[in-house]
Simulated scan of single mutants.
Amino acid sequence: MDHHLDLRLLPDPEFGPLALMEALYAKLHRALAAGGTTGIGVSFPDVKGLDLGLCLRLHGSREALAMLMGTAWLRGMRDHLAIGEISAVPAQARHCCVSRRQSHSSPERMRRRLMRRQQIDEATARERIPDQAATFLRLPSLQVRSSSTGQHFRLFIRHGPLQNDPVPGVFNAYGLSATATVPWF
């Protein structure tokens, strides 16, 4: 994670920033899933509250970022972006884990899953998972479609606390990791 590249959304009269960020992130996910890349992480340096902001920052080695940018993954998005240069991470950068958080907001869905997995009836599932079991996340999110399953879902993104030292690891096809950190500056 010694280099980064910023992709900044430009104002567009026809599309809002969230719609553009979702389209950009969908293209990135497809490119990472197709390439099997585990060495590229993402962050959203403009994140504030529930808003991810206008910048998607890609992190990785110079070679990994150059290889990604050498593909046509941004086809159709270039008019909506200011694409930065692949640059070295500043020496004073701290580190942050950018990860996916899953919401358990649908007790009904959790009951169906429990019924399938444990071969129990609906009444028993309702006893084990009451309506009050729903939890709602107050995190920024994007509506995405999984390349592997085709399912549409809300991807909640958590920027963890800042750390002084990097934590190495692998990143998934969304550029996220449960443990690895990306530079934060």
Rank of each mutant, 00 (worst) to 15 (best):
V144T: 08
S43A: 09
G76R: 10
I157K: 00
Q143H: 13
I120C: 08
S147L: 03
W73Q: 01
A88R: 12
L50M: 12
G84L: 01
Q92Y: 12
F156E: 02
S61Y: 03
E85D: 13
A133T: 11
G150V: 03
S147D: 09
K48V: 14
I157T: 00
D121P: 06
V144S: 05
F156G: 02
M69C: 11
F153M: 10
G76W: 06
P107C: 07
C55K: 01
A91I: 13
R158F: 07
G84Q: 00
D121W: 03
R126N: 12
P130Y: 10
R109P: 10
R101L: 08
F156A: 04
R126L: 13
H95I: 01
A93G: 09
S103G: 11
G70E: 06
R113L: 10
A66S: 14
S103N: 07
R126P: 09
L52F: 00
V47M: 06
C96Q: 12
R112K: 15
L81Y: 02
Q92I: 09
Q102W: 09
P140V: 01
A123D: 14
D51V: 09
R117A: 14
R75A: 15
G150Y: 10
R128D: 05
H159T: 03
G70V: 05
A93Q: 07
V98K: 00
P45Q: 03
R116Q: 15
R62D: 09
F153A: 10
I157S: 00
C55E: 01
R78E: 12
E63Y: 06
R113G: 13
M67E: 15
